[in-house]
Amino acid sequence: MTQLRKDELTDKVNNGERLTRQDGEDLYDSDDLAWLGGLAHQVRQQKNGDVTFFNVNRHLNLTNVCTASCAYCSFERKPGQKDAYTMRVEEAVEKAVAMQGDGLTELHIVNGLHPTLPWKYYPRVLRELKAALPDVALKAFTATEVHYFESISGLSADEILDELIDAGLESLTGGGAEIFDWEVRKQVVDHNTHWEDWSRIHRLAHQKGLKTPATMLYGHIEEPRHRVDHVLRLRELQDETGGFQVFIPLRFHNDNNRLSHLSMAQPADVLKTFAVSRLMLDNFPHVKVFWVMHGLSTSQLALNYGADDMDGSVVEYKITHDADNFGTPDKLTRDDLLDLIRDAGFTPKERNTRYEVIREYDGPVSLAERRAAPQAIWA
């Protein structure tokens, strides 16, 4: 990229002008990570200052039995296969109740597309979970799952969402997005939920007052232009509904799936993806880095490349850890997250699912404060 083009893009960002598809592709073409990070960090600071949000959440996967066999997935099992499981409602509630310590505020529920579970199982699980944990928000089901519920129930997504909301649903999850471009999608996805249905279901959720996340699975067979196309579709839908709270880039993991021959995205590509996403998605209030999929050090760096949210104190996250642990722990406590955020130079704020701040914390200790403190404290 020429210096003239970099200057043009810098001026557009400084002037708050919306970036185009060509702008996004040119940003990906740049190898100047310091410049990209500076632009993205500038936008991040304008939107959220030096704050990094987090929440105390747990992941609950009701079943890993799935009719689909997506090329990137390491989680799904077929009926009767070793390690296949499906929780009874009572078992799911018991497991969730056991997770409620440490100020839990959110349960994140994603599952396989089970071939025989009846539709009524899903709202019943939510009702029982809400009864057992009335102060815990239920963020549950991808648009892919809701689309699947349409096929097994004979109901419309409109009716399905109404029943799930009545049962306690507070937000859909952002999954099932992968990459929206059809030429890529048809090679990695083994279900029939594509952009048209994914966007239809999130649009309906937004119309009903739900705020939802959106994701992008990157670093497999897609090219940068496909990532740009993906975020532009989301940006257009956000212009229409205003219902997305956060964008979450998810790094593809290459173990125990049909794409294991591919290399995973390296840190430079990770940081570039966060920076370009932050710059393109001018109408998204937040960008989240999911530390389980990116590792702790890269996640801290991503906070300087546009991300302002570090996903919470996850326990037993099966979907990635079934693929490859790659050195990340299964759990971070609240204190762990506070330390990571402060060490990266940011002020932590604990939020709930609606991004309402429920607790504020002191920011990072400055070098001057460290030097002024008694030496024994920092030894």
Rank of each mutant, 00 (worst) to 15 (best):
A344R: 02
L169M: 12
T273R: 10
K272N: 10
D362I: 00
F53K: 08
D339C: 07
G295E: 12
T10S: 15
K130L: 04
D135T: 14
H114S: 10
Y148H: 14
L129I: 02
T212V: 12
R227M: 12
M99C: 05
V43P: 09
P374R: 09
G306K: 03
V51T: 15
H220P: 08
P348N: 04
K78R: 15
G80A: 03
A40K: 05
R88M: 15
I358N: 12
I152T: 09
D23S: 03
R370H: 05
G209S: 04
E150G: 06
L279I: 03
E236T: 05
L138E: 11
T273L: 08
L367T: 04
R334D: 06
R127G: 08
Y361C: 07
I248D: 10
A131Y: 01
W291F: 14
F252T: 00
L172S: 09
G80E: 06
S74R: 04
H191D: 07
D181A: 13
V188L: 04
E8A: 12
L232V: 00
N48S: 15
S69E: 15
E150L: 04
V56R: 12
D29I: 00
T353G: 11
E128G: 01
M216I: 10
H108K: 03
K139N: 09
S299Y: 08
I152G: 10
D339P: 00
L169D: 08
A34W: 02
D7M: 13
L332N: 05
S277D: 06
D311T: 03
D309Q: 01
V184R: 02
Q45M: 15
E25K: 05
N15Y: 02
E183F: 00
P374A: 06
Y72L: 11
A84T: 08
K211T: 14
A40C: 05
G80Q: 06
N61F: 03
A84R: 10
Q3P: 14
S313E: 06
A157Y: 13
P224L: 10
L138W: 11
D339I: 06
F180Y: 14
A92H: 11
V56Q: 12
D322C: 01
T298S: 15
A373V: 00
V13L: 09
Q22P: 00
Q238W: 03
R203Q: 14
A265E: 11
L210F: 09
F284E: 07
S313K: 06
L62N: 10
T347G: 10
D282F: 07
D311M: 04
